[in-house]
Amino acid sequence: MSLPAEQKNQRRKETRLFLFLVVCLFPLLSVAIVGGYGFIVWFLQMLYGPPGPPN
Rank of each mutant, 00 (worst) to 15 (best):
W42E: 00
G52R: 10
F39G: 06
S2E: 04
L28G: 14
W42L: 02
N9E: 15
Y37P: 00
L21H: 06
Q10E: 11
R12G: 05
R11T: 15
L25R: 03
Q45E: 11
S30F: 13
R12L: 12
F26S: 02
N9H: 10
E6W: 09
P4Q: 04
F18V: 05
M1W: 05
L19A: 11
I40E: 01
P53M: 12
P27V: 10
P50D: 08
V23Q: 07
C24H: 06
L19Q: 10
F26V: 15
W42N: 00
R11N: 13
F26M: 13
C24W: 06
Y48E: 03
I40V: 12
E14V: 09
L17Y: 04
G36S: 04
F18P: 01
L17W: 01
V23S: 01
R16A: 13
R11K: 14
R16G: 03
I33E: 08
F20E: 01
S2M: 01
L3V: 02
P4Y: 00
V31F: 13
K8A: 15
K13L: 15
Q45H: 13
P51Y: 09
R12H: 07
P53V: 05
F26H: 05
P27D: 03
L44F: 12
K8V: 08
F39D: 00
V23G: 01
P53K: 09
M1L: 09
Y37C: 06
F39I: 04
L44W: 02
I40Q: 02
I33Y: 10
L29W: 11
Y48L: 15
L19M: 12
G35M: 01
L28D: 00
G38P: 00
Q7F: 04
G36T: 02
S2P: 03
Y37N: 07
S2Q: 03
L17F: 06
F43Y: 10
L29P: 00
P4C: 08
V34C: 07
M1F: 02
F20G: 08
F43Q: 08
Q10N: 09
F20Y: 13
P51S: 12
